[in-house]
Design a protein around this nucleic acid. Sequence first.
DNA 1: CAATATAAGTTGCGAATCACAATTTATATT
DNA 2: AATATAAATTGTGATTCGCAACTTATATTG
Lengths: 164, 164
Amino acid sequence: MSKLREPLDAECGLPLALEVMGERWSFLILRAAFNGIGHFEEFLGALGIARNILANRLARLVDHGIMARTPQADDRRRVAYTLTAKGFDLLPAMLALRQWGEKYGLGVPSNPVLVDSRDCQPIAAIGIRAHDGRPIAYTDLQWLDRTQLGQAGASCCGPDGKID
Amino acid sequence: MSKLREPLDAECGLPLALEVMGERWSFLILRAAFNGIGHFEEFLGALGIARNILANRLARLVDHGIMARTPQADDRRRVAYTLTAKGFDLLPAMLALRQWGEKYGLGVPSNPVLVDSRDCQPIAAIGIRAHDGRPIAYTDLQWLDRTQLGQAGASCCGPDGKID
DNA sequence: CAATATAAGTTGCGAATCACAATTTATATT
DNA sequence: AATATAAATTGTGATTCGCAACTTATATTG
């Protein structure tokens, strides 16, 4: 269906992620799924999406292994759509987008807060951290060629790293 | 231009973020900008995007304060497009998407690695962390109503939190 | 100054995608 | 057998996309 689109890059994971999640409604369907929505008519009511678009998006998400389609045993008319592990792994990306939207779009606090159930404290803002968990400022970020990784030398990082 | 689209929710930051970044090419333009691309023809060559679409997307990104448009002083034909602070704040979301694409799309290592320039170690995977920086497993996440936040009681979290 | 070159942006057109409604298929209920 | 329900498909018009050619504004060259 979407094979007419450009191969884009293939050297970066971003175009790959956008091939599925870059389409309209994909992330909102995912959010509804995280909310516990699991059936066609539920998605329909929760999102206000057109039927054919919803059917198309769900099929696409299933094709890409982000959601699983399982007709219910007791009533095989009903089809349950559930997140796979691959789909669940999109939660950080979804939260990062959501937090960004909250920060810059009217500053709504967005009532249900995601908390750590062990101490009931809200989670930290999704951000960039060093290997030890320490937050990194944007000015401390560099792009380094993979071949130069293991070297313990001091000035290993050039001044003009590029993002691929 | 896009006012015919649904208001979607307005209670969640996600639809707000998707209004701009959910359109095709938006994230790829952003990636190019992080790469140092800053002029119209550069974007054109780097992305393989159509001229009119690029002009439209850049104008939209500028309208939303994600990029800034500044004609150069020495040659006013040339227009420099640069990321604003708001645009820069999309880096965590972009990296989360990119890492997800890398993880599930052929497992390409994606050569230029983002490192902390202080110790030249690759950054940690973008993930969900507690307020103190400790990573949280998906099973330890709960959604809590904002009004119940300050309470130091033990079982403050119900068993069926929902994402809004 | 006139002619040409360059950067950014616009317009026109066919193809793909979108939203809305009505219809179809398969299964369940009465 | 008749009706109801869940999921998905089809049909139609509007919107958006991608490609190419054109326009506008500024710079450069003879």
